[in-house]
Design a protein around this nucleic acid. Structure first.
Lengths: 243, 243
DNA sequence: ACCTGAACACCGTTCAAGT
DNA sequence: ACCTGAACACCGTTCAAGT
């Protein structure tokens, strides 16, 4: 039962009588975003969300819909926070900036990167990014491959962000796993596994180190993806000048 | 209560008296793999698994452990099925083959790609791939970057497979989403979004088309990643010959 | 229209008791 | 050691009833 946390322990059955603000979709979405920052998009319950606005679970369904609808509303708001950069930046620079911004934001709302990827086109706030991004790629010479290139870039980014989210979701499992794999460091008969184990153990010493390693990995992956696309672009241009 | 599906509706309290084979960890893991093929790793319950071997839920805990332990056992088996290619293949060819094999296999056990990525080093069956893969990258000249390169390649592959898994998890949502976004096709004021919408609508006509599109996207993403790494390799080699 | 309060049909997990 | 049968503490969701 709600209303117990308030200073005046009202026993009234109505919110207004208890001096509580009316529940709205906006207030619920906002509370859901706070819960997401604290626990991640997959780790709060409808009951927690209701309690956060001093209401019963059923009011969530009345104002927003089922859990999935709330999640979608949160993702919509998170994507809307990403800055839209200048259309006349070079394609590489434009995407490099967007993907860096995405990491900063999505990491603040754990689980959102995964949803952005799986909801895909149905997120209204992402239309402006799709539109400008695809236009920039077309302008750069990617032609008919532009939508595909856009998808590959954003998907790659979202995956590595999701990896980080998953990481700190069960940190206990990680520590144990790193310790277990750590024994491969001394296996001279498995030099490849040994090299991997050393890298893993070096980069799991403390939380700060782990964070830095994931950041490096993100930048490396995004850079290689951009390099590969740049190489592809020269092939496309060579073909079109021939044909 | 189990034992009701058998031909002889035994009311005995013991499995042996009912003529049922003893429950073992192997039988449970095997049943879990079948359930995973049918419903995906996240869409079966411990109770379903128990029922599949005509047992009570508690016996799962007795023989394997909690749900997560069963999932880990399944992933271990799935990874073990991936063929390990020849160590003297060129690095690009070796990874290209492995990642193609991974897609074929992991897609057959929906949800496994996501776990492979998040379990990371703690999967014993993947040690042999890590060892050989890292050695091949070292041999190719990637030096100290080899473990990172291995991670970037396998992570990229697992992500795109996870994307496909997520896709057919809620196909209804996809069809609706594609239809909704389809309206952007006629938006001449948003040429980039329009191009993306056309691509999406073309490739969501039927299940076969969708499957093919995801396959193309996978190959494209993996190829660009490999291209980007090849470009990086020439930079590393140039630096080392200078230093 | 908005909220209450309880219920429904699940879940993963635990545990004393049986054999 | 292995299995039974029931229970515990949750979940998301629904719904008649109140105001």
């Amino acid at each position: 039962m709600p209303f117990t946390s308030a200073g005046s322990p009202s026993r009234s059955r109505s919110r207004t009588a208890a001096g509580l603000p009316a529940v709205t979709a906006e207030r619920l979405t906002c509370a859901a975003m706070q819960l997401t920052i604290a626990h991640g998009l997959d780790n709060w319950t409808v009951r927690q969300l209701a309690a956060a606005v001093d209401a019963y679970p059923a009011v969530v369904y009345h104002h927003v819909g089922d859990r999935e609808a709330v999640v979608k509303a949160v993702v919509e708001q998170v994507v809307a926070k990403v800055p839209l950069h200048d259309a006349d930046l070079p394609w590489r620079e434009w995407f490099s900036r967007m993907l860096t911004d995405m990491r900063g934001l999505f990491r603040h709302y754990p689980g959102s990167a995964r949803r952005v990827q799986s909801f895909g086109l149905s997120i209204e706030s992402s239309v402006k990014f799709i539109d400008r991004g695809v236009q920039i790629l077309q302008g750069a010479g990617f032609g008919a491959e532009s939508p595909l290139v856009y998808n590959v870039l954003t998907s790659t980014a979202c995956q590595f962000i999701t990896m980080e989210d998953d990481h700190d979701a069960d940190q206990n499992a990680r520590v144990e796993s790193a310790a277990k794999f750590g024994r491969y460091q001394e296996r001279a008969d498995l030099p490849g596994a040994s090299a991997m184990a050393s890298e893993a153990s070096e980069n799991s010493e403390d939380a700060e180190q782990v964070r830095r390693y994931y950041g490096e990995m993100y930048d490396y992956a995004v850079s290689r993806c951009l390099d590969g696309l740049a190489a592809r672009l020269t092939v496309i241009k060579a073909n079109s000048s021939v044909g």
